[in-house]
């Protein structure tokens, strides 16, 4: 039996953790300004953060909030901690930014540091590096949040004993919309002690 021990939902300009609003900003600021505020609020020192694209920033911040009071690598082997993510637009928001640097022959300046983020799964690499998670990774692209797909994949990994803890969720960034939902699944009932089920995942996501 597996459980959801904690979740985080960064939605528009609010941050919810385990059913509690822990941060909100009503000043109508840009996404990037908002990420910077969260970064400061979390009081992390991680210079690489500033180089990341929006999707990676959102994923990193959500994972930092989710794991604020945990060090998973002291509880589990690094190779037993996995990441299962999904979104709708893959890396489109960064694809458009990169395309702007190549579409005009007279203003052509492609940069490898932007290009690397034109892959949706890079955010998993960023979270893995920051936390030293060497477990299973998968990135799905779906029109809508598909709790069943994430749940079933996560359960298969837990049941065959290959993974002990998994960060799962949905990370979507649009022009002025943020939807970052991450939750932690493990075999022991701690924290929220919520049964890992499709129904419960959907309840948390829609709260």
């Amino acid at each position: 039996m597996s459980f959801i021990s904690s979740y985080i939902h960064i939605k528009d300009k609010e941050v919810w953790k385990d059913n509690t609003l822990i941060y909100s900003n009503t000043e109508g600021i840009s996404n990037n300004k908002f990420y910077k505020l969260l970064y400061k609020q979390l009081a992390i020192k991680y210079m690489k953060f500033y180089k990341m694209d929006e999707l990676s920033k959102l994923g990193l911040l959500a994972s930092e909030y989710l794991l604020e009071d945990r060090t998973l690598t002291s509880e589990f082997k690094a190779e037993d901690i996995g990441i299962v993510l999904m979104n709708r637009q893959a890396s489109l928001i960064t694809d458009i930014k990169y395309y702007d640097t190549i579409k005009d022959a007279t203003n052509y300046y492609p940069s490898p540091s932007v290009f690397v983020y034109t892959l949706a799964n890079i955010v998993m690499g960023e979270i893995a590096i920051k936390n030293n998670f060497k477990g299973e990774n998968i990135f799905y692209v779906q029109e809508h949040f598909n709790a069943e797909l994430i749940h079933n994949h996560t359960e298969r990994l837990l049941q065959r004993g290959s993974q002990q803890a998994l960060l799962c969720g949905w990370l979507e960034v649009e022009e002025d919309k943020i939807d970052g939902f991450l939750y932690l699944v493990e075999n022991s009932a701690i924290g929220l002690k919520l049964k890992h089920s499709i129904e419960n995942i959907n309840i948390l996501k829609n709260q």
């Binding site: 990441i83 060497k134 998968i138």
Partner: peptide, 11 residues
């Protein structure tokens, strides 16, 4: 089959 991250470098 299986997949694992190096947790080393993105590129």
């Amino acid at each position: 089959g299986a997949s694992h991250n190096d947790a080393n470098h993105i590129s």
